[in-house]
Design a protein around this nucleic acid. Structure first.
Lengths: 211, 211
DNA sequence: AGAGCCGAGATGATAAACAATGTTGTCAAC
DNA sequence: GTTGACAACATTGTTTATCATCTCGGCTCT
C-alpha cells in the first residue's frame, strides 16, 4: 500500500461519508484496516492535511475537517474561475470528438432527470464536469478542481435530493453544452459561471446547519 | 527543521537557480546541509514531486524538474483564469485600504521603470500581483498561483532583462491598477488576462532553447 | 461532588537496519 | 583504444524499533 493509495483510500472514505466530519482518524485503526506501515499512514494523513481534507492537531492526530461557509464560498469562487475558463477553452478548441461525448452525456442526463434518480444524476453530473475540464486541455485545472470538489462532494449530493434543483441544474447544463458545441466561448464561460454560482446558492440555502 | 521549512528551502534554491533543472537532489547532501533527519528530507522531496517541482524516479531519487513549452502554456492559461478572476473580485470588493496600497506600489513601479532596474522591478512585480490575489479574498488563489509561479520564476526573470518588456508590462499594470481602483471589475479581468497572455508571448519569444 | 493524579493510549520524531536498485571503476578481451 | 563483464560502492525504498511528549479517561482522596 503506497502513500498515494492510502490517500485515495482515505479520500474515498471521506468523500462517501464513511469518515464523517470531525471523526478522528487513528493511525493504528488505519494500519489494521489497510496493512500499511505507520510511516506511510502518517505520511498520507499529513499530506491530506496540506490539502485541507483533514486537520491535524498536535498530539491529537488527524480528524476529518469540516468546512465553514466562507470556505465553501471561496471554493465556489475558485470553481467559477477555473471551470468557467475551462468551458471557454473547450468551446474555442477544435475537439469534435470530445464535444460529441459531452453532447451524449447531456442527452443521457436529460433522460435520467425525467426519471428523477438523483444518485445517478450526481454521477453523470460529475462526468459532465469532468469532460469539460478534459476539454480545456489543462492538467492544472484537473488538479485544482479535484481539491475543490472532493470536500464538497457530500454536500453537493445533498442538493441533488431536490427534484427542482436537478431540473434547474440540468437546464444550466443544456445551455452550456449547446454553447460549447457551437463554439461560443464567451457565452459558455458566462453560463458556466452562472451555473456554479447557482450551485453555491442552492448549497447555502439548503441547510445552514450543515455549514 | 520541519518538512515545510525544508520544502521552502528547496523551493528557494530551485527558484533562484542554485539547483538547476535536471540536477539531482541527493538525500545525504541535503541532510549534511540542513541537518534535518532523513525522514523529513524524503518527505519534503516527495511533496515537492507532487507539486511538480521535482521529479522522482524509482531508486534514482529526486531531481529538479524542467518544464516544457506545453506546460508553460498551461500554466499561463491557469494564471489567466485565476489572476483574471482575482482582479475581477478585487475590483468589485470594497477594500479601499488595499486598493490604495496597490496604487502606491504602482507608483513605486513607475519610478523604477524609469531607472531600468530589472531586479527591483521583478520584486515589485511579484508584490503587485500578490496584492491583487490578496484583494480577491480567496486563499485558494494563493495556493494555486504559488504552484504556478514558482517553477516559472527564473524564466520570468529573464524576460525582465528587456527594457521594452518592462515598459510594456508596466503599461499593462497601470491600466489594470486604474480599473481595479475604479471598481471596473469586467474591465480589470479582461486587462489582466491580456497582461498574462502578453507575459506568455514574451516568454515564448524570448528563447526557444530555454523551453 | 470536585480537585488532583496516574496510567493507558496515541502521536511526534529519530535512528537503525536491511533490501533493492543504480552508478562507477577495474580489468581483460578484442 | 574500445567494449563488455563484473565487482565494489552509493543511493534509495521500506520497515521496524525506540523514546519523549501529550491527551484522555478513570481513580483516589478530601
Amino acid at each position: 500500500m503506497t502513500t498515494d493509495e492510502l490517500m485515495d483510500w482515505a479520500r474515498e472514505n471521506i468523500r462517501t461519508g464513511r469518515f464523517a466530519p470531525g471523526q478522528r482518524l487513528i493511525e493504528s485503526d488505519i494500519i489494521r484496516e489497510t496493512h500499511a506501515s505507520r510511516n506511510k499512514v502518517r505520511d498520507a494523513l499529513q499530506r491530506l492535511a496540506t490539502e485541507g481534507l483533514v486537520a491535524i492537531e498536535p498530539f491529537r492526530g488527524a480528524s476529518v475537517r469540516s468546512i465553514n461557509r466562507d470556505e465553501v464560498r471561496q471554493m465556489y469562487e475558485a470553481r467559477m474561475a477555473l471551470e468557467g475558463f475551462a468551458a471557454h477553452q473547450f468551446a474555442a478548441a477544435d475537439n469534435d470528438e470530445l464535444k460529441q461525448e459531452l453532447k451524449r452525456t447531456q442527452q443521457e442526463m436529460n433522460d435520467w432527470v425525467k426519471r428523477g434518480d438523483h444518485e445517478h444524476f450526481a454521477k453523470l453530473n460529475s462526468k459532465w464536469h469532468k469532460i469539460i475540464i478534459d476539454g480545456s486541455g489543462n492538467q492544472y485545472f484537473h488538479q485544482f478542481l479535484a481539491r475543490l470538489t472532493i470536500p464538497l462532494y457530500r454536500l453537493l449530493f445533498l442538493t441533488f435530493y431536490s427534484k427542482e434543483r436537478i431540473a434547474v441544474a440540468n437546464d444550466d447544463h443544456k445551455k452550456i453544452t449547446k454553447a460549447i458545441v457551437a463554439g461560443n466561448a464567451d457565452e459558455a464561460e458566462a453560463l458556466m459561471r452562472d451555473h456554479v454560482r447557482n450551485g453555491l446558492k442552492a448549497l447555502l440555502e439548503l441547510d445552514a446547519r450543515q455549514l
